[in-house]
Nucleic acid binder design. Structure first.
Length: 801
DNA sequence: GATTAGGTTTTG
């Protein structure tokens, strides 16, 4: 068996013949005496088995001596080995790249390819029964990643063989042409993958390591995801199976068969997280150490040129910079240009170029509602970057490399109308091509730079602004603050024109005054809608809660205790209701009374007094008759119920009277003289001061300058496009109010997600405990966009509180 | 199965 595989764990002494005369590969020459000599090296290339006819084969392989003395011929430690016949076939089947070989019985010939492959001038030819190849399978760690060149005893290799696959990383200074190596390095320059004229994408890198040698590296791969994930200069890269090559007199690295790459953040102290799309890469403690060693080393080297990553707030016109940002929206401009709308949460001190595109071509939302200070930058990307941009999803985080800040950006054809003078405005161009690393890529959501950006962008949804860099944004004059008209959730209906001011200004100016503001809803009270329903007395100006059914039911129960007779003068229908379980409940009479006057006019059913009914019974009867007035008859005289209960039921609606301002009529004349039967006339007839339904809410408003509590009361009905009376009785009307609040303040939403409102605020003073307090109320303001078909019922609105 | 590109002095 000419190819002898050394088994795992077997010491070389048992199977490998004595090797007293090993020749170092660089020392080989055509005149070398070969008999009884051996050569040792690692397989760095294994060619295909070539058939030359029946049972005749040829195979070419390259081995590299790893422990050769550097002061000898460093460039010639790799040599072509040509195997013939059965040996070639055996070799093809039992040897892999990375294995270590000991070969014997060879002849030394002149390498016909030396000028081309830059390898050893000689080759080794192995043929016949005298030729032997001993193989230590698998890749074996021969030395740690240190620039020193120490040798490892053969026995060490064998013990480790096939147990743990370990990689040897070559210092960049030690690379010789034509070999396959693994390297660890710091990225000092990179281009995002770009399409080649061939079948692959190409990544171009420049890398360096502790040996301080800078080496170019070209990665060809048809799959974008398999390209190195490099986000910035200073990232750490691990390359497996890259081929050294001489180009323009310098060593460069090129992908070779079985190539793989992993990258890491280059920041000292950050977690060592491998970035790879491969599910089966090797990563161990040694990798952490190698990454950390490179980070520490690079930190003191100033390898990375003056940090090109710049926020919009620090952009200088006419410069090139890298921008980390969030994509808000994009739109194709023409076949060679795409518009990206991005922001990074900082405000560019220069006015920004506004690029108009047809709204229907815009993908994503320009989210102008949260961009109160015009933070959106328009980036025009050209040519090859258009293709990359096509894959981008609004909302994703990007880094754009070598972005050009162009003052007085020339106008786009689509930009002619309305953009009269933007000569001083800054436009951002990602020019075509890949020179200077021009390009863009999506950054993963969890990358450290994104965490910073996210935090900044989320500050827009918080009221506590601690970041001094944002202060400038918030303190921009209100004139420059403005959401897109389409994004405003409310509309001012007032007929006066006053300047729009910030909430801070509203507070500082104080009452009495009217203000126009633009704000978002931070919170509101009450959260439970029925609690916002109030009863208002025009007479005494008090507001009371609508009593709940337990309270009202209690009034009815109390009234039922009056079982005495009622005074005459009414048509009376007396119903004796059977006992109901529980059996101890007293039997009772339910009495319907109708005034003789109405009876005479044939309006008997239009106003019915009801005595002795429960609340539930009253509601049931009310659903069939137009006006039901629950009554009692203490001392035999018909009297309306206590005004904690409704004095009138009309269909499903209930009407209340003011306890304080009503002067209830009693007796025979009750209900006399009613012409038009509605709640007002009935109230008048009963001496009831009618209470009016209203909606009362406290809205906490917020803009960039602060927050302010404002009431929604007087114009609440038009604000919600709903009548309070309907809201008190009708689920659909209640839902409408809830929908509006959910739109202004979506449950679980951040401030950034809430719409802006144009508001008219009335500032006035109230006295409370002898103190004058400033109060604010939202007036003349309607919500927009929903329920266009509904309009508030015409009601007299409660006057200002 | 080889080929692709080989940083760069950009500019709508």
């Amino acid at each position: 068996m000419p190819v002898h595989v050394v088994k795992d764990g077997a010491g070389p002494s048992t199977q490998v013949p004595a090797q007293p005369q090993r020749i170092s590969i660089p020392l080989l020459c055509p005149t070398s005496a070969c008999t009884g000599k051996t050569v040792k090296g690692r397989v760095v290339h294994k060619g295909p088995l070539v058939s030359m006819g029946e049972d005749n084969y040829v195979l070419k392989t390259v081995i590299q001596e790893e422990d050769s003395q550097q002061d000898m011929s460093p460039d010639h430690s790799s040599i072509n080995v040509i195997l013939f016949g059965a040996l070639a076939k055996d070799y093809s089947e039992s040897v892999s790249q990375g294995d270590v070989l000991l070969v014997a019985g060879f002849t030394v010939g002149k390498s016909p390819t030396a000028h081309k492959d830059k390898l050893h001038a000689c080759n080794l030819q192995l043929a016949g029964d005298d030729a032997w190849v001993y193989v230590w399978p698998s890749t074996v760690s021969l030395r740690a990643f240190v620039p020193s060149k120490r040798t490892s005893p053969v026995s060490t290799e064998v013990t480790k063989a096939a147990k743990v696959v370990k990689y040897t990383y070559a210092p960049l200074s030690d690379l010789t042409p034509g070999v396959v190596v693994n390297v660890y390095a710091v990225v000092t320059f990179f281009k995002q993958p770009f399409r080649t004229k061939g079948t692959d994408y190409c990544s171009t890198l420049k890398i360096t390591d502790q040996s301080n040698k800078k080496v170019g590296c070209t990665i060809f791969c048809d799959k974008l995801e398999e390209h190195p994930k490099i986000f910035k200069m200073g990232d750490i890269i691990r390359l497996h199976r890259v081929k050294t090559q001489l180009f323009n007199g310098a060593i460069s690295l090129l992908t070779s068969h079985g190539f793989s790459v992993v990258t890491f953040d280059g920041t000292v102290g950050s977690p060592v997280v491998p970035r790879t799309s491969s599910g089966s890469f090797k990563f161990g403690e040694e990798d952490c150490q190698a990454v950390e060693a490179l980070r520490t080393w690079a930190a003191n080297q100033s390898l990375v040129p003056a940090v090109p990553c710049v926020p919009l707030s620090a952009v200088q016109p006419k410069t090139y910079f890298d921008l980390t940002c969030q994509l808000l929206a994009k739109a194709p401009v023409d076949s060679s240009c795409t518009l990206l709308k991005v922001w990074d949460g900082s405000k560019c001190p220069h006015p920004l170029l506004d690029v108009f595109v047809e709204p229907n071509t815009l993908e994503g939302s320009p989210t102008l509602s949260k961009d109160i200070a015009n933070l959106t930058a328009n980036v025009l990307v050209y040519d090859n970057h258009v293709e990359v941009s096509r894959q981008l999803k609004p909302g994703s985080y990007l880094r754009i490399y070598n972005l050009h800040a162009v003052p007085g950006a020339s106008r786009l054809p689509s930009n002619d109308s309305g953009q009269s003078d933007q000569t001083e405005h800054l436009g951002f161009y990602l020019h075509g091509g890949s020179s200077y690393g021009k390009g863009l890529r999506v950054l993963p959501d969890d990358s450290p730079d994104i965490l910073d950006l996210k935090r900044i962008l989320e500050t827009f949804s918080d009221s506590d602004i601690n970041d001094s860099s944002l202060f400038e944004v918030w303190s921009t004059p209100p004139e420059s603050i403005g959401a897109s008209p389409d994004e405003i959730a409310t509309e001012r209906k007032c007929d006066h024109t006053v300047e729009q001011v910030s909430l801070a200004e509203v507070k500082s100016r104080g009452p009495p005054q009217v203000f126009h503001v633009q704000a978002q809803l931070k919170s509101y009270q009450p959260q439970r809608l029925y609690q916002s329903l109030k009863l208002y007395c025009h007479e005494c100006k008090t507001i009371r809660d609508v009593p709940d059914d337990v309270t009202v039911g209690g009034v009815f129960s109390e009234a039922q205790k009056d079982v005495g007779p009622c005074n005459n003068g009414y048509w009376t229908l007396e119903l004796n209701l059977p006992r109901e379980p529980p059996s101890e409940s007293p039997s009772r009479n339910l009495t319907l009374l109708i005034s003789s006057q109405l009876m005479g006019k044939g309006k008997a059913k239009e106003l019915i007094f009801l005595k002795g009914a429960t609340l539930e019974e009253t509601c049931r009867i009310a659903s069939a008759y137009s006006n039901i007035v629950p009554v009692t008859s203490p001392q035999g005289t018909m009297t309306p119920l206590d005004l904690s209960a409704p004095f009138l039921f009309r269909g499903t609606k209930r009407y209340y009277g003011c306890k304080q301002c009503s002067q209830l009529k009693v007796g025979e004349s009750l209900g006399e003289g009613v012409e038009v039967l509605d709640e007002k006339s009935v109230a008048d007839a009963l001496g009831v001061q009618l209470l009016q339904y209203g909606l009362l809410m406290k809205l906490e408003l917020q803009d960039g300058t602060g927050s302010l509590e404002a009431l929604l009361w007087r114009d609440a009905e038009s604000f919600f496009h709903v009548s309070a009376e309907d809201a008190a009785n009708d689920q659909e009307a209640q839902d409408r109010v809830q929908e509006t609040m959910d739109r202004l303040c979506p449950p679980g939403s951040s401030m950034a997600e809430r719409p802006w409102m144009d508001l008219c605020l009335s500032a006035y003073t109230v006295e409370e405990n002898g103190q004058r307090l400033a109060c604010y109320q939202i007036c003349h303001t309607d919500t927009r966009g929903t329920n266009p078909h509904t309009h508030p019922h015409t009601h007299a609105t409660p006057s200002d509180t």
